[in-house]
Amino acid sequence: MNRNACRPLFAALALAVLPPAGTAAAQSVPGVPPSIGQEIDRALSQVPEAHRRSAPGGPTVGQEIDQLINRPVGQAAPARSRQVSLAFENKTDVKALVIQFTPSGSSTWGPNRLARETLNPRAWMRWRVSGTDCRYDVRITFALGQEFVRLDHDFCAQEKIEVTAVDAAAERPALPVREGVALFRVVNRTDTRIAVLRVSPAGARRPQGDLLGIWMMEPGDVYTGRVPRGGACLFDVRAGFDPEDTDTVTLARQNLCETPEVVVPARRSAGG
């Protein structure tokens, strides 16, 4: 509703509840007419305390109305924090090792929510988080190497995701282009598992931490990642084939904003 159209409505409300003439307006300044919000606060101050709305430390009703009226045209109201419930049910026959979820605009996946636990077949878990977001990206990995990804899921509309099957390579949709975050995939085309995966800004003296954790990428597996979008968007993708991260290959200066799929190629034999 247009803020100018709100004024007659709030004025009528104020007049309907105003106390008798002669009572001082709440926080009024001599010579300055009180605002509609101040008039409403003055009227509400006459209500017995037991019947007033309790709002310790927050704005009064009148202050909230003044903020609404004085907000610049076209400016959205500030988002209110809420508690969002995120639940996952494992309907596959393989246990899940990693569950990550993050607001859709975030540039990192965040921690493994399972920590030292696993999500076993036919089991489900729920997490409650506070924030202003309802839409989250989700990444789940399983003991046999498969990955399940759900992007931009509205948990306020549907709080539980039922995982009935992992993502097949032929069914993976194209990754969306988003402002502020670049989504990418790393594909293991070698004949051995990848135990450690690091994605670091190109030329960084120290590589970033391992992205896989306890999960390992079997041949043919895919890891879906995310990095901040901006600048040259060049990253070094380093795959380690042993847990000690001594046998490695690095794909240098990958532009993950323009080329969101990075393939770790088959390795040459020792005599090749």
Rank of each mutant, 00 (worst) to 15 (best):
209 G>W: 03
122 R>H: 11
187 V>S: 07
176 P>A: 11
143 A>R: 07
155 F>A: 11
151 L>T: 12
188 N>V: 04
154 D>C: 12
144 L>H: 08
191 D>V: 02
146 Q>T: 09
156 C>I: 06
147 E>R: 14
113 R>S: 10
134 C>T: 10
112 N>W: 09
193 R>D: 10
190 T>Q: 03
152 D>C: 02
122 R>Y: 07
141 T>A: 12
145 G>C: 10
143 A>E: 08
140 I>M: 12
127 W>L: 06
178 R>K: 07
132 T>V: 09
210 D>L: 08
170 A>L: 03
151 L>D: 11
161 I>S: 13
196 V>W: 05
121 P>M: 13
116 R>W: 01
206 R>F: 07
135 R>H: 05
200 S>W: 00
195 A>K: 06
133 D>V: 06
204 A>F: 04
138 V>M: 01
205 R>K: 05
210 D>A: 11
122 R>F: 06
164 T>Q: 15
177 V>K: 06
152 D>I: 06
167 D>G: 10
138 V>H: 02
137 D>G: 07
157 A>H: 05
180 G>R: 05
154 D>V: 13
186 V>L: 01
201 P>I: 00
153 H>A: 15
174 A>Q: 15
112 N>V: 09
125 M>E: 11
203 G>D: 04
194 I>R: 04
200 S>F: 01
170 A>D: 12
206 R>A: 12
193 R>F: 04
197 L>E: 02
116 R>I: 11
143 A>S: 03
115 A>Q: 15
155 F>L: 11
206 R>G: 00
148 F>N: 07
182 A>D: 10
198 R>D: 01
137 D>V: 06
177 V>G: 00
182 A>N: 13
165 A>V: 10
130 S>Y: 02
124 W>K: 09
210 D>H: 09
140 I>W: 02
146 Q>R: 09
195 A>S: 15
206 R>N: 07
122 R>N: 14
155 F>S: 06
152 D>V: 05
128 R>G: 12
143 A>G: 04
126 R>I: 14
182 A>C: 10
130 S>I: 04
201 P>V: 01
200 S>P: 01
180 G>N: 03
120 N>F: 08
121 P>A: 14
209 G>A: 13
131 G>S: 08
176 P>L: 07
175 L>I: 02
196 V>G: 00
182 A>W: 03
